[in-house]
């Protein structure tokens, strides 16, 4: 029992340090030229989406990474979506639509609700809260 708790504590410390190091890298990447969103993993990637193809959605309830995977699953199966980026810290979901395509507010609200969250605001373009 004692050994297990000690092992758990060491594993936690290891992952905490690893995460801290990753955050350092993220901060560094954010400082480049005020890009809308930096490319990261393929499934959580806005790529080089133009401002007119970017939708920023402020949502509530966005607290858990594992649960928020539903956002990717719901949005990325649509043919009009090019990419998605989730920001747990700010409670924002950025959606990149394919050039020339858009998604109306009612559909966005339904997609967010289906993913398990509530929409607070929808903003189109690069600038958001």
């Amino acid at each position: 029992m004692k050994i297990s708790i000690t092992a758990i504590l060491f594993m936690t410390l290891f992952f905490a340090l690893q995460s801290h190091a990753q955050h350092g890298e993220h901060e560094h990447n954010h400082n480049h030229e005020g890009q809308v969103a930096e490319p990261s993993a393929a499934s959580n990637d806005m790529g080089n989406a133009a401002c007119e193809d970017t939708i920023n959605i402020k949502v509530s309830g966005l607290v858990c990474d594992f649960c928020a995977r539903s956002l990717e699953k719901v949005f990325l199966k649509r043919s009009d979506v090019a990419g998605i980026k989730v920001d747990l810290g700010k409670g924002f979901v950025a959606v990149a639509t394919k050039p020339g395509l858009t998604i109306d507010d009612a559909t966005l609200t339904k997609l967010i609700t289906d993913s398990g969250y509530n929409v607070n605001a929808i903003q189109r373009g690069c600038e958001h809260g």
């Binding site: 905490a16 690893q18 995460s19 801290h20 990753q22 990261s40 747990l88």
Partner: peptide
């Protein structure tokens, strides 16, 4: 959670 991870990080909970 001993640390707050970003989306895509490894998250740990005690």
């Amino acid at each position: 959670a001993p640390y707050i991870g970003d989306y895509g990080d490894l998250h740990t909970w005690l």
